[in-house]
C-alpha cells in the first residue's frame, strides 16, 4: 500500500487523521478497554463499590445454560440467514443476468429492501404472520397448520430468519449481479462453442469465478446476521418465546440494560468481541484458500 510519490509534510497527515482517530479512541477503544476491565470486576448489589473477581464472571456466564442456549440460537440463526439470503440472491442474479429485456426493471424492483431498516423488516413480517392479524398467518392456519410464533419457538425463529434474510437478498443480489457481469463473455462463449450447456457453464466457469464475490458476501452476511439483526429480534420477538430467539447480542443488551447485571454483561461483551475477531480471522484465512481469484 505504499506509493512511490508522497507529499513530504510532517504535521498535516496527523491533522487529517485526528478526527477519525479521536472518535475511534473515545468511542471504540476506551469502551472496549472498559468492557474488558469490568468483566473482571463485580459490583456489590447496591452499586457502591466493585471488587476484582478475576475470571469469575466468565465462569458464571459460560456455565449459564441460558448463555449456551443463546450461543446455539445465534449459530442457527446466522447460518440460516446467510445461506438463505445467499442462495436466493444468487438464483435471482443468475436469472437477471440471463434475461435481455427488463433487466433494469427487475433490478429496481429487487433492491428496495436494502433501504428497509431491520426493525421495520421484522415488523412487516410480523404484520403478515402475527396470529392476531396476519393474513398469511390465517391462511397457514386454514391449511391446518398450528401456526403460533408467539408460543412456538421454532416458528418464531423461522419468522425472524425469514425477515432477516428477506432484507439481505437485495444487497447480495446486487453484488452477485455485478460479479456475473464482470465475467468475460468470451469465456462463456468459448465454453458454449465447446458444447457446454447453461448448467455446466454455471458450475465450471461462472460459479468458480464468482467465489471472490461469494466470499466477500459470506463475511458481510455473517456479520449482518450476528449484529445488525438486533432490531429484528427486539421488535418482533423480544428474544422469546422462552428464549428461543435470544441471540448473543440481544442477551448482552438484555442483561446489561434490562437486568442491569454489569459484570455478566461485560463478560459477554468480551466473549462477543473474541468471537468477532476469530470469525473475521478464520474467514479471511480459511475461505481465502478455496477462493479462485481471477
Amino acid at each position: 500500500m505504499s506509493r512511490r510519490v508522497v507529499f513530504p509534510n510532517r504535521v498535516l497527515p496527523y491533522l487529517l487523521l485526528a478526527p477519525q482517530v479521536a472518535i475511534t479512541l473515545v468511542f471504540f477503544f476506551w469502551p472496549a478497554f472498559q468492557a474488558v476491565r469490568q468483566s473482571l470486576y463485580r459490583d456489590d448489589p447496591f452499586g457502591f463499590s466493585s471488587r476484582f473477581v478475576g475470571l469469575a464472571n466468565f465462569e458464571l456466564v459460560l456455565s449459564d445454560p441460558n448463555y449456551i442456549n443463546s450461543l446455539k440460537v445465534t449459530v442457527i440463526f446466522s447460518l440460516s440467514v446467510a445461506v438463505l439470503a445467499l442462495v436466493a440472491a444468487l438464483l435471482l442474479a443468475v436469472m437477471a443476468d440471463r434475461v435481455v429485456r427488463g433487466k433494469r426493471i427487475y433490478q429496481t424492483l429487487l433492491i428496495w429492501p436494502y433501504a428497509v431498516a431491520p426493525a421495520i423488516a421484522g415488523m412487516l413480517w410480523l404484520f403478515l404472520f402475527s396470529p392476531a392479524m396476519g393474513t398469511l398467518a390465517v391462511m397457514l392456519r386454514d391449511t391446518g397448520y398450528d401456526w403460533n410464533p408467539l408460543l412456538n419457538g421454532d416458528q418464531a425463529m423461522a419468522m425472524v430468519v425469514g425477515a432477516a434474510a428477506w432484507k439481505q437478498i437485495s444487497y447480495n443480489f446486487l453484488f452477485f449481479l455485478a460479479g456475473l457481469q464482470a465475467i468475460p463473455k468470451s469465456l462463456i462463449e468459448a465454453a458454449a462453442i465447446d458444447g457446454a450447456g447453461p448448467a455446466k457453464r454455471f458450475w465450471t466457469i461462472v460459479f468458480p469465478l464468482l467465489s471472490p464475490t461469494s466470499f466477500f458476501l459470506l463475511v458481510v452476511n455473517t456479520v449482518y446476521a450476528f449484529f445488525d439483526t438486533f432490531g429484528i429480534i427486539h421488535a418482533v420477538t423480544g428474544g422469546g418465546p422462552a428464549r428461543a430467539t435470544e441471540t448473543l447480542v440481544y442477551k448482552v443488551y438484555n442483561d446489561g440494560f434490562v437486568n442491569l447485571n454489569l459484570g455478566a454483561s461485560s463478560a459477554q461483551s468480551v466473549i462477543l468481541m473474541a468471537i468477532v475477531i476469530t470469525l473475521t480471522v478464520i474467514q479471511f484465512k480459511y475461505v481465502e484458500r478455496r477462493v479462485h481469484y481471477a
Binding site: M1, L17, Q20, V21, T24, V26, F27, F28, F29, W30, P31, A32, Q34, A35, Q38, V223, F226, F227, F230, V249, V252, Y253, G256, F257, L262, S265, S266, S269, L272, M273, V276, I277, T280
Partner: peptide
C-alpha cells in the same frame, strides 16, 4: 499503526461494547 487502529474498529461494533459506550 493508524491504519490498523481504524481497521480494528471493524471488529468492535457497538453491539459488543454496549454498556461502556453508553457510559461514555
Amino acid at each position: 499503526l493508524f491504519f490498523w487502529m481504524i481497521f480494528i474498529t471493524l471488529m468492535l461494533p457497538v453491539e459488543v461494547r454496549i454498556l461502556p459506550t453508553y457510559q461514555v
